[in-house]
Design a protein around this nucleic acid. Structure first.
Lengths: 190, 190
DNA sequence: ACACCTGATGACAGCCGCTGTCATCATGGG
DNA sequence: CCCATGATGACAGCGGCTGTCATCAGGTGT
């Protein structure tokens, strides 16, 4: 006889995503989510710092994928090649099975400015982490920050395309294309 | 005999910046700000959508500076050269007299995550606007978005350096340097 | 003059996000 | 068998933000 069911955090996350998708983020209160899985509002806020954070999970693992990619690049490579390795590794973090889920989640985020804000903060955290990784890999500032930001941009644009309606290519494939576009955009010059 | 002093909006902005700097953002309530200039909390929220927005002003003018810079570039130029023109125009939006103010404002923003979030949203709005400007200038997607994001990144990094302690160069000067760094980061390749 | 309209404001009630605090109670260790 | 631990609930309370209604100065039209 258990006093409480296990996996409270996971149940809350699942319920939150469903309710945000069904009614919208603002129309869903923290109490709604908690009660829908038999918990109190107070417990919700013990598991998540705020109402937005509940759908931003696994950020650490996500960032780690990039960092691992950086480590896999041979030292001394040009900054953008190291970034390419990071993108490759991160791309595998989103296999095709995950496309449907990512699409749903992203549709919730773009539908709400405050969730969009939070996503931008996460992307900035990612970029900061990549820059730190590049520095450890021997790339100095300001190149590290510029390359990291460029990598985050490529990821973001590629991710947007990956979840676009009708898109069938894998994320790494799209990333390579977008990175190529970025290279040519910055190479034409006067 | 006036019922209310004019310039409520401006007085609120000034008071907010001062209070945020003095006590910190979270320790300042909207009512504090309003009362400090003889207005009610309700009036504060009539002038500003929320407590953060009060220190993000003139965004439209700021964006327009970039857009004007784009228009000034000769049509048919490479995307990054158009972006360079936009950066040049935007740089003049921050003359050296403004450096002290910008420094104070930025120190308030970086001291508070929720203000940081809002700033990122504004930067994204800027990037979106630049991308639209580039498209009107004949640059197709995805080049427009990539070039716009790169421009926003260069601006952000350059701005950070401009308000760094001991920095004396003008913003446009720093922007040119950072843009050059970005070019070389993306040109070395394998 | 006078009635009227407009626009900025104040007052008040109320919802919700979020926090501090204390009590409760299963589980596992000594 | 007692106690420490840890997840939870209950409750009070603050502050951000909104809806609504009343107030009142200044300008407008007749």
């Amino acid at each position: 006889m258990v006093r409480w069911e296990p996996g409270a955090r996971e149940r809350l996350q699942k319920a939150a995503l469903e309710l945000y998708a069904a009614r919208g983020f603002e129309q869903t209160t923290a109490a709604d989510i908690a009660e829908s899985v038999g918990l109190s509002e107070r417990t919700f806020f013990r598991h998540f710092a705020d109402k937005r954070e509940v759908i931003f999970n696994g950020q650490a693992l996500f960032e780690q994928a990039f960092v691992d990619g950086i480590s896999s690049a041979s030292p001394g490579s040009p900054a953008l090649d190291v970034v390419a390795a990071a993108l490759e590794a991160a791309g595998s973090f989103f296999p095709d099975e995950r496309r449907g889920y990512s699409r749903l989640r992203q549709s919730i985020i773009v539908a709400n400015p405050s969730l969009h804000e939070r996503e931008l903060l996460k992307m900035t955290a990612l970029s900061t982490r990549i820059a730190a990784g590049l520095r450890e890999h021997g790339i100095p500032e300001p190149q590290a920050t510029l390359a990291a930001q460029s990598g985050a941009t490529v990821f973001h644009v590629a991710f947007g395309q990956w979840i676009a309606e009708g898109e069938t290519r894998s994320l790494p494939e799209i990333e390579r294309e977008i990175l190529g576009e970025l290279r040519s955009v910055t190479q034409e010059s006067a």
